[in-house]
Amino acid sequence: MTPIYPVIWRDDRVLLIDQTLLPTQYALVEINDYQDMVKAIKTMIVRGAPAIGVAAAYGMYLGAREINTQQRDTFLTQLEIVAQKLRETRPTAVNLFWAISQMLKTASESLGTVEEIKHNLLITAQNIQKQDLQTCQNIGNNGLEILANKPEKLTILTHCNAGALATAGYGTALGVIRSLWTAKRLAGVYADETRPRLQGAKLTAWECVQEGIPVTVITDNMAAHCMKKGLIDAVIVGADRIAANGDTANKIGTYGLAVISKMHQVPFYVAAPLSTVDFELETGEKIPIEERHPSEIYQVGHTRLCPEGVNYYNPAFDVTPAELITAIITEEKVVKPIDLLAFKE
């Protein structure tokens, strides 16, 4: 199949796969300035922590390109304004902040003219994208090594979408699944629908179909039943932010999935790059949790599901305690959550 790249740099502009239209329509959105990138991230045209990081890096370059000054100090001051606008788009995904920090570091450390700084920013954004793709492939290989030790093929349950669409390409959790499939060690995938935005039903299922991977979509409240029936060999999910102790923020519903995995003695893995680890946060209690508009709950498309006059609570993420996580699959190696601190610089 043709590789899936959610963020594309082409002809001095960014092209994004509009993930709000999948699976029924594949379309590219053209991004020419950083304000458009801010909107694209906020409205989830691009989503998934690593993909958001890549998009934000290009957004920083687009913002830099719009700054009309030859004075270095003025340029850096205005670039910080661009950075702040991008930081405000999605508060939970740490890759966003990491990528912006890398771009600001490039700008502050670059010598030469403002135009040369702008050129260096583009190179940095492209390198972030290339590095993320390689990172995901390494995560896939490490996951294959730790999982493919059973004589039979595995059936994996995943939640939300941590595939090519959520990264620079290939994926984290779905990257491990891809590696298992390529190695002929995968029987199939169970994909939680992932309410309220249905990323599992829409995006993960779409990616699996593109690759010919057998996929079964289930509603979120069917996972415990499937585990009890012995249908699931392991759970693999992605992450939007991981605290230093291994507590992991991921799409809402992940915590509950970890609890029932523990109950049924099903291994529960988190697949994520080390850039997702926020070593400044000691525990997951300090991870900011984004709350989204209640319309995601009370309607699907133009169909209203709930009566007028009720209240809503719509956190986009929850935090899974480290003690419920079997291991974290990184690009370096597979580690117990308690061993993450060994990677702190």
Results as ranks from 00 to 15, higher is better:
Pro151Thr: 04
Asp11Glu: 15
Val209Asn: 09
Gln19Asp: 13
Pro196Lys: 00
Gly48Trp: 07
Ala166Ser: 05
Ala271His: 08
Thr135Leu: 02
Ile128Gln: 04
Gly163Cys: 00
Gly256Ile: 03
Thr303His: 13
Ala223Pro: 00
Asn221Ser: 11
Thr69Leu: 01
Asp192Ala: 15
Pro288Glu: 15
Leu62Met: 14
Val217Ser: 08
His119Thr: 15
Tyr298His: 01
Val237Asn: 09
Leu305Arg: 09
Arg241His: 11
Lys150Thr: 09
Thr155Gln: 11
Arg241Thr: 12
Glu80Tyr: 06
Leu340Asn: 01
Asp33Val: 07
Leu28Val: 10
Asn120Cys: 10
Arg304Cys: 12
Ile338Val: 15
Thr219Gly: 00
Ile100Ala: 10
Gln137Ala: 02
Val319Arg: 02
Thr158Ile: 01
Lys105Pro: 06
Val189Tyr: 06
Ile236Asp: 06
Asp132Ala: 01
Ser108Asp: 07
Gly230Gln: 14
Ala191Ser: 13
Met222Asp: 02
Phe343Asp: 00
Val319Asn: 11
Gln199Arg: 07
Lys150Asn: 15
Leu121Trp: 05
Ile8Trp: 11
Lys286Pro: 07
Leu340Ala: 03
Gln129Thr: 08
Leu76Thr: 03
Asn161Thr: 00
Glu331Met: 08
Tyr255Lys: 15
Ile31Arg: 04
Tyr34Arg: 07
Val29Leu: 14
Thr135Phe: 05
Ile252Met: 01
Asp12Gln: 14
Trp206Glu: 05
Asn311Gln: 12
Met227Leu: 11
Val334Gln: 11
Leu86Ile: 05
Ile297Pro: 13
Ile81Asn: 12
Gly59Tyr: 03
Phe75Arg: 11
Pro321Ser: 02
His293Ala: 12
Thr326Ala: 04
Ile81Val: 13
Ile139Glu: 00
Ala56Gly: 12
Ile252His: 08
Gly309Tyr: 09
Asn161Arg: 05
Arg87Cys: 15
Leu96Val: 12
Leu198Gln: 04
Gln137Pro: 08
Leu104Met: 08
Val94Leu: 15
Asp220Ile: 02
Gly175Pro: 04
Leu86Val: 13
Leu104Ala: 01
Met44His: 11
Pro214Met: 05
Cys226Ser: 12
Lys251Pro: 04
Thr216Arg: 15
Thr89Arg: 09
Asp11Asn: 15
Ala243Tyr: 05
Thr326Ile: 00
Arg65Cys: 06
Gln35Asn: 13
Gly112Cys: 00
Ala342Arg: 10
Pro196Glu: 01
Ala166Ile: 03
Gln84Thr: 15
Gln19Tyr: 14
Lys336Val: 04
Gly171Asp: 00
Ile260Thr: 04
Glu308Arg: 04
Asp73Pro: 04
Met1Leu: 14
Asp192Val: 04
Leu79Pro: 10
Gly53Asn: 02
Ala187Phe: 11
Leu76Asp: 05
Ser179Arg: 01
Val7Phe: 05
Gly53Asp: 09
Glu30Gln: 13
Asn250Gln: 01
Leu28Ile: 10
Ser295Asn: 14
Lys85Phe: 14
Gly59Thr: 10
Glu152Ile: 04
Ile52Pro: 07
Ile139Gly: 02
Leu22Arg: 12
Ala187Cys: 08
Lys105Thr: 14
Thr92Asn: 05
Thr135Val: 11
Thr204Gly: 06
Val114Pro: 13
Thr320Gln: 01
Asn95Trp: 11
Thr167Phe: 02
His159Lys: 06
Val82Thr: 07
Asn68Glu: 13
Val114Asp: 02
Met222Thr: 06
Tyr61Arg: 04
Val259Lys: 05
Ala243Gln: 03
Asn32Tyr: 13
